[in-house]
Nucleic acid binder design. Sequence first.
DNA 1: CGGGCGAAGATTGTATAAAGTTTCGCCTGT
DNA 2: ACAGGCGAAACTTTATACAATCTTCGCCCG
Lengths: 235, 235
Amino acid sequence: MAAKSRPKSDAPDASDRVSRIREGVTAAILEHRLLPGTKLGEDEIGEIYGASRTLVRTALQQLAHEGIVNIEKNRGAFVARPTPADAREVFEARRLIEPTIVDHAIDAASPAWIDRLQQHLAEEREAELRGDARASVRLSGEFHRLVAEMSGHSIYLGFLKELIARSSLIILLYRRHDTPACGTDHHAGIVAAIRKCDREAARAQMLSHLTEIEAELFLKDPAADELRLADVLGA
Amino acid sequence: MAAKSRPKSDAPDASDRVSRIREGVTAAILEHRLLPGTKLGEDEIGEIYGASRTLVRTALQQLAHEGIVNIEKNRGAFVARPTPADAREVFEARRLIEPTIVDHAIDAASPAWIDRLQQHLAEEREAELRGDARASVRLSGEFHRLVAEMSGHSIYLGFLKELIARSSLIILLYRRHDTPACGTDHHAGIVAAIRKCDREAARAQMLSHLTEIEAELFLKDPAADELRLADVLGA
DNA sequence: CGGGCGAAGATTGTATAAAGTTTCGCCTGT
DNA sequence: ACAGGCGAAACTTTATACAATCTTCGCCCG
């Protein structure tokens, strides 16, 4: 009888080997080292991480479920190439969900969390000073994930993880080349609103932040990404 | 060179063997033939579907990502047992997302879609007349999924699929035994609002519908599900 | 008589090998 | 010279075999 279902060591993405592969490939995609459309051969990745194709396959399937990898039957896995329509859907979803997330984050506000947020802001400013666009995008995504973790809602967190991953891909694909790093100031404003427990301000700033990010994108016609991809591939 | 990257036959859950397994297990869980906490042995399922453990494993991993199965390392896969806290998160997310979904569904309203919705309402009424609780829950979920498909937003659709699957599990676990089948009338009202292109009415009715479903649940303390499960297991 | 230790059995995690499919190059025929 | 088809190579898919881990049952000791 007694033996109950103890949660045990239930680390979500612990030090599994498949998690290492998944995070490695994710980082490579999000840092633009793997371009959209690139084929992800199982042997290739397996040799890099010293793992068998079995593990690589499960990692790729997870990435496919996250939406940053496409798996075509009998053809293999490729880095996803979100269309402008996909981009609009992703940002609409974020505009819907994230204001609610900050609202809940305020409920969970504590000195420890505030400290963590401000520490993150410092990292973002540093990356921006260096002009490191890759790190900027990555840290910007992590800021939003941090707020979601703070909210304590696992459902929203899971959804947002997926949206952030896709957003990073979208931003790297469609960002206007002349725009500066997107508003770190916005993040600071959101944190300030959270500190003051000003729900309306936090929601409004999150919303305008997301709107501005999308406005800085080049989401014209479906052919645009083809052109851009061709340009980037240097062919 | 030009003709590249056609989407091809990209049926999401086509007639793959792994999809058949996934859908079969999903149906069994949602129809309460597999109770929460039940162990899903790989050999066992593999023998049922005449498939090797490789395929069963991938199906189980997909179900785990959908949230209706828990996989514990070196222990196996089990039917998920959502806590009351999980239930509240799921329904909060649905209250956030679904009003927006109906809004978009109105944009996509067409005679064909209206017909399909009404046809579905007829099926629901029939199941309700039979007093078939299983079919009622299943069809209720399918109604919401239908509206999401109608909206044309793949992101929302994906999220909602997950939420519906979890909701079915939650409803079957925590439903008060004396409540009648939850409002088929509500669904009819939502369809009527969609037909009239009355956005505000549609959003409001969807919201109140979800609120009422959650209100009919027995979401008291965390120990409640333990008791109920023990009761259900008949031990 | 109760509790802890230990070995056997069962089950999952991982790797490797066989099978099927697609793709690309090459060759032949017109 | 060009179009079409044949064939081989590479890849994914699926199945099987091996290794690691956990569970369970029995036994011994206190």
